[in-house]
Write a protein that binds this DNA or RNA. Structure first.
Length: 331
DNA sequence: AAAAAACTCAACCGCCCGTAA
DNA sequence: CTTACGGGCGGTTGAGTTTTT
């Protein structure tokens, strides 16, 4: 026989948006009888729909325990964290977000989070810094954000939120930028993109802009308060989910240590080591001990910011040496 | 003011899987 | 053991809405 025919192909069954009347019928019926067999339900409830359509309408919309409205930042972080482990297992992800349906999470991911990660230079599939550098064409905006930071009084509460947002974004982008730059050597395929974008000039500009001038930005970099992904919280909530280690290891999205897209570049010059060190600091350390849960950029950033003394050290080193930096990239 | 482009999200489709027959 | 069925899942669509030009 041919492939299975769609359940509602049998003519006459309504498709498309639900009317309030239909909703009411469905709700009434389920309230009185429970849903029982979805296939049998439409006839019993007096609905001209297929059972599948009814089930979908109920689980994604009419169910009384559904939370509506914007996702909180907490939920957002949870989704990103879980997605880095589970991939597109929307249903599994939704079990950790009370009142949110898989469909809603999927939509939210596709319309918001994916873009957000891309904009931050994070590959939404691997959750690691993107290896193509096209996002860096956005660098002017990044720099503008950083400049704005410098002009803002961070104590001005009316601007507090904006400072935080810009702060987070700038931090993340700078770190990814530095990772990518520092991991590019003339041998890597990145090189082409780097030259294409005239990144060398951008790099100098960026470093001068970020590193040389401002104590305020530096302070913000070292200030964990505005950090998008508080590492401690992230780690513990991650554990709270009770995700078995094996899940992440088996996940097709878990990146094996050998496939690190940001390999420590061969130190072409002594001066480049500082950035490479930082790169290692950012990306590598936990991978060795716990490859499963620590391979996301958020975790990496968390590490970087967790240890104030260390990050302070690296930034100071970077600042001290920035004027004389000779990079492994040559123009 | 109007047209086009971009976005949103409810709902659909086809496939998969567990299980009852 | 095989197969048919129902429920569930992830990918995709497209009408309605909002934003941009």
């Amino acid at each position: 026989m041919m492939g299975r025919s769609p359940c509602c192909d049998v003519s006459g069954l309504k498709k498309g948006p639900w009317t309030p009347e239909e909703d009411e019928k469905l709700m009434d019926y389920i309230q009185k009888h429970g849903h029982g067999s979805w296939r049998a339900l439409p006839k019993l409830a007096g609905l001209n729909r297929c059972g599948k359509s009814c089930r979908l309408r109920w689980t994604n919309y009419l169910r009384p325990d559904i939370k509506r409205g914007k996702f909180s930042e907490d939920e957002e972080r949870t989704i990103i964290q879980l997605h880095s482990v589970l991939g597109n297992k929307w249903s599994a992800i939704s079990t950790h977000l009370p009142g949110r349906t898989d469909n809603e999470i999927k939509n939210f991911w596709n319309t918001h989070l994916r873009k957000k990660l891309l904009q931050m230079g994070i590959d939404p599939i691997t959750h690691r810094p993107r290896t193509d550098l096209t996002f860096l064409s956005d660098l002017p905006h990044l720099l503008a954000a950083a400049n704005l930071l410098n002009q803002m009084n961070p104590l001005d509460s009316s601007l507090g939120l904006q400072v935080d947002a810009a702060d987070q974004l700038a931090k993340i982008k700078v770190l990814n930028l530095l990772q990518l730059i520092s991991s590019s050597s003339s041998e890597t395929p990145n090189m082409e993109a780097v030259n294409l974008l005239g990144l060398n000039r951008l790099r100098d500009y960026a470093l001068n802009e970020f590193v040389q001038s401002n104590t305020q930005f530096q302070r913000l970099l070292n200030n964990p308060h505005g950090l998008a992904a508080n590492p401690t919280q992230m780690q513990s909530s991650f554990l709270d989910f009770g995700i078995p280690q094996s899940t992440s290891f088996n996940s097709s999205y878990a990146t094996p240590t050998t496939a690190n897209p940001c390999p420590a570049s061969v130190s072409a010059s002594p001066e480049s080591t500082i950035v490479n060190q930082m790169d290692s600091k950012i990306i590598h350390p936990n991978e060795i001990s716990a490859p499963s849960s620590s391979s996301t950029t958020f975790d990496a950033l968390g590490d970087f910011n967790l240890d104030d003394e260390t990050s302070d050290f690296y930034w100071r080193e970077l600042i001290n040496q920035s004027s004389s930096l000779s990079w492994p990239i040559t123009s």
